[in-house]
Amino acid sequence: MSSSPEAAPSQEFLIEETRRYHHFITLALWLAVVTGAEIVLIFLPIPMPVVLTILSLMSAGKFFAVILWFMHLIYDKRLLFWIFVAALMLTFATFSALLALFSVDVLDPKWIA
């Protein structure tokens, strides 16, 4: 559904585009609200692990909302979604491992090979 017809757009196409238009507006409002909530959240006296979890979820939520609706992945072919998500998962795994590797702060010399 990403491509428009060559001639005048058909009726169903316009209805679909209008429906998307409303989704976009709703999403923009949600993005603003969530961002506002994030900024408030960091100043509330809540234990850090809880805040961190909520922040991560909110950030991931915004991230996926944008790729799904603004970037049309929810309307497009499934393949595009998986190309991107596969790369995302690889990135996440690789750099989580890298950060974990740098957590070895004190190394007993007898461990070294």
Partner: peptide
């Protein structure tokens, strides 16, 4: 191939679990 890069770096002292 993406999950083995540190085998070039065993002698840098990665710690027992990563090694």
């Amino acid at each position: 191939g993406f999950a083995v890069w540190s085998h070039h770096m065993f002698t840098t002292g990665l710690g027992p679990v990563p090694t």
